[in-house]
Design a protein around this nucleic acid. Sequence first.
DNA 1: TTTGGTATGTTGGTATTCCATAATACCGAA
DNA 2: TTCGGTATTATGGAATACCAACATACCAAA
Lengths: 227, 227
Amino acid sequence: MDQTHDTDLRIEHSPTTLRELAVERLRNAIISARFNGGDRLVERTLCDQLGVSRSVVREAIRVLEAEGLVETMPRSGPVVAALDWPRARQIYDIRRLLEADAAAACARKADARVHARLQAALAALEVAVGEGVASRTRDTTTAFYEVIFTSAGHDIAWEIVKRLNGRISRLRALTLASTNRRIAGPVHMARICEAICRSDPRAAEQAVRDHLDDAAEIAHSLLIETP
Amino acid sequence: MDQTHDTDLRIEHSPTTLRELAVERLRNAIISARFNGGDRLVERTLCDQLGVSRSVVREAIRVLEAEGLVETMPRSGPVVAALDWPRARQIYDIRRLLEADAAAACARKADARVHARLQAALAALEVAVGEGVASRTRDTTTAFYEVIFTSAGHDIAWEIVKRLNGRISRLRALTLASTNRRIAGPVHMARICEAICRSDPRAAEQAVRDHLDDAAEIAHSLLIETP
DNA sequence: TTTGGTATGTTGGTATTCCATAATACCGAA
DNA sequence: TTCGGTATTATGGAATACCAACATACCAAA
């Protein structure tokens, strides 16, 4: 409410180019496991399903390709990227580095306003977990982390983490659904939130690491039997 | 030469689609500062310059957009992304995390073969620096890091770092050209290489951090006067 | 100088067409 | 029956032409 004076009355330019919509739809379809790893993405079929032209579909596929959700083999067209444990493991390792760093930075520089936002995000998350709707849980979890990253000034790291999350989101859907996770998840988040509000970077870092170790272990047990 | 048996006899599918060529050309044009930050990228003009159709150009732009090299405002078209110090700083911070981790992992698990490859890469880098050709220096530096990341099994982190490097490559061109850098760079690399060959993860980590602190400082001095 | 309107350029998006190739089906001869 | 070759189809890669919406610059009038 301070330096946003000019943007306040700015007309909300519908950020919805058709292509972005298509990207979003496709991304959700992959994340929600409606498409499975290895599935082919036939352009002309997607045109019908999405009701858009082929150029839009193709550009959307390029975007998803760059996000790592889709892989295109030279002559055989795009397929949904498969996820094995070695890759998932790497993703969790990278998240651990970036998120721990962001949480520490956040704990160091957050003020009361940030604390409030964080607690609000945590409350929303707990409600969503209570409801038991996977997509809501995912979104509120994302929102919680978004507060941490952006308030720490780690915009670019947040972009990266968002992208990585897309790639392991099918796992997340499963891990978030697992019963012990539904309890452990919010507890970990609460620890993170509390450490940040206490301005204790080391504790925040450690809480993030514990949380991710936990998530990675569940993912591991899920992936090790179904390669 | 161990688990690559099946890929060895695989036919090398020429990966040269027109679009990939276009992406490469445009990326190089941006990296080599032939296009400057804020420059508009008019589709039809690029069609003429590249000698390809609009669909190719547009898909190429989507890829570069996802790489963070260009930004597209809804109705006003793509522009070359500008780089300011806050962003560059974030990029260096992330690289510090990922590269230090990779170097440590590499030092932990590298065998004699990796050591040899690393030393070869270092030698090539020293030659390139001696020649003083910016692009050669860039490529050999990249090759050096590639050995570290891939031998550590950090493929995904390497993808991320490559992308980040694209975004700060214009700076790199300048930092690599600066005279004290031409001496300090290889010295740092040699320290990294030596620590890895000594299987000393902590030292490798520290050498990487020193190297990046140095690079970041040069970038800082370059960016602080020309926002 | 400000206001209002106009002209032009550019993007977002669509439709249509052609070509090259991979995969598949098919078919005849040994 | 099996092998080797051929026809067909499905699909991606690419080019082109077209339109509507919007942005920008410019120009004219008050």
